[in-house]
Simulated assay, not measured.
Amino acid sequence: MGTHITFKRPDGKEAKGYLANAARGNAPGVVVIQEWWGLSENIKALTDRFALAGFDALAPDLYKGVVVPYHDADAAGKEMNSLNFIEATEQDVRGAAQYLKRNGAKVGLTGFCMGGAVTIIGAAKIPELTAAVSFYGVPPEQAAKPADVQVPLQGHFANKDDYFSPQMVDAFEQGLKAAGKNYEFFRYDADHAFVNEERASVHDREAAEQAWGRATEFFKKHLG
């Protein structure tokens, strides 16, 4: 459904991504951020699904063409650890937001796993955003603190998550509450990455569909 495009980063360099447009014109935008595996077929499918839900959706390719197979967590970890999260957020992700906003549309940001953490960093650092939805990802404190979040934030988290533990999520939520931020967090009795349909060992369709409905309603509320 979508197509691969090239777009400009704020620093003038080019970035690549996967774009899926809504059927209607003047649609709001959603930037979609990959898991630590890269710009996988699953992320492209979710980008397509946002388009079907009425949003122009763009997933920037943060790994520049590298997609790691699901069985190779070590390779995924190496790719993620070699990524400069702040530069990726302020350049590739912000460039994607600027691309979607070029016709005056409101733009939201969402991401999964690693992308969920990038989403919260973006909610603190990207001025073009109107709302953000993080799926099972929380950034380290040095990247973004709860008090830094500048837009309404929705979060979807797994109670059986070894990567972003319930304790980490609770601590971040307490920070948001103490700072008086506009947020809502949901927790699911599921595993990390429960939205990923390509990973049968962790996918939970009921939780995934509930989270998807909440996310799209949240974006429709804030983006139009």
Rank of each mutant, 00 (worst) to 15 (best):
S134T: 15
Q98G: 11
I5R: 01
P152F: 08
L153R: 00
Q150S: 10
K181E: 13
V93M: 13
I43K: 01
Q150E: 10
L176S: 02
T47S: 11
T47D: 07
G137K: 10
R205I: 05
V68C: 00
Q150K: 14
L52P: 00
A15F: 06
E79V: 00
K181F: 09
H4M: 04
G25H: 13
F172L: 04
A75D: 06
L109S: 01
E206W: 06
G25V: 07
E87Y: 08
K221T: 02
G104P: 07
R199S: 06
Q91R: 05
A23F: 11
G224C: 05
S201V: 05
D56F: 05
V66H: 09
K101N: 13
G115A: 03
A193F: 08
E128F: 12
L19V: 09
H4R: 08
Y136N: 04
P69A: 05
G122D: 08
A45D: 14
K177P: 06
G12Q: 11
T216Q: 04
Q167S: 15
T110Q: 03
E14A: 10
G137P: 01
E206P: 04
A207W: 06
L176A: 03
D92V: 01
E217F: 02
A105E: 14
E79W: 03
P69V: 05
E217P: 07
F185C: 00
L83F: 04
R205N: 06
K44W: 12
Q167N: 13
A97R: 03
K44T: 04
A131P: 04
E206V: 01
D56P: 01
A179K: 08
N103F: 13
N182Y: 07
P127L: 08
A22G: 08
S134L: 11
E14M: 12
G180P: 02
S201G: 09
W212C: 00
